[in-house]
């Protein structure tokens, strides 16, 4: 139809087809040709849909909101939902973040300021009753650890750490192999019990050594 179908080759300078109704070099509006679909193309579509269906099913675990492991496989993810956390590992990490600032990463504290945990009769008592209280609501005033006197304050962690976290930290401190510790582990339930029992303590201020020494090592069963 048109000798020069390209509408955009710039014409000679100054040639402005001012009166032309649209560009006379322009083709009329485009349309679509009707052709049958090829078998190759249909095969290609089927392959992709098949693969997509397989992949979604294979790598979605059980479609659960808490299933993060895509390799768990359908149904298998249910055992994966709650991962058992090793309290010693969790405790070590929390200890380094929370406790080590004063008690030092090696647990020896700072002479005259922060009492040591390594070999401490407070930490290695046969039961955790006093230690849980100190961790929950803090400690103030004079205290004797391993024969040395200290007079400082420890901050409360009642709102900062939950039962599982506190139990993990205390378990770590009581069972630190490098420190030669081999006391009993602390269960989250023990922490929860004492937390509940002493819930009014925060209003009274931190514990003093005298108050704590009046308590038994083991929490009496209610």
């Amino acid at each position: 139809m048109n000798p020069d179908p390209d509408n955009n080759t710039p014409a000679a300078a100054g040639v402005v087809a001012d009166l032309a109704p649209a560009d006379p070099r322009e083709h009329i509006e485009p349309n679509e040709a009707q052709r049958p679909m090829s078998l190759w193309y249909v095969t290609f579509l089927c392959l992709f849909f098949g693969w997509g269906g397989y992949y979604v099913q294979r790598y979605s675990a059980d479609y659960g909101a808490l299933s993060y492991d895509e390799n768990a496989g359908f149904g298998g993810a249910k055992t994966n939902i709650v991962k058992q956390v090793d309290p010693y590992v969790l405790g070590k990490r929390l200890f380094e973040n929370v406790c080590a600032k004063c008690h030092q990463p090696d647990g020896h504290g700072v002479a005259g300021q922060y009492p040591p945990l390594v070999g401490s009769e407070w930490a290695l008592a046969s039961g955790p009753a006093r230690m849980v209280r100190i961790a929950l609501d803090g400690l103030q005033g004079p205290i004797t650890v391993k024969g040395a006197g200290y007079n400082n304050t420890m901050t409360p962690h009642r709102d900062a750490l939950n039962d599982q976290q506190l139990a993990a930290i205390l378990t770590y401190v009581r069972t630190q192999k490098e420190w030669g510790h081999n006391a009993s582990a602390v269960a989250p339930e023990e922490v929860a019990g004492i937390r509940n029992k002493t819930k009014d303590r925060a209003a009274l201020g931190s514990w003093t050594a005298a108050e704590l020494l009046a308590l038994p090592d083991h929490e009496p069963r209610p």
Binding site: H27, E29, E32, A33, Q34, R35
Partner: peptide, 11 residues
Amino acid sequence: KVLGIPVYKYS
């Protein structure tokens, strides 16, 4: 439009 031919396949 520029080529003046239809699109290859409607499907």
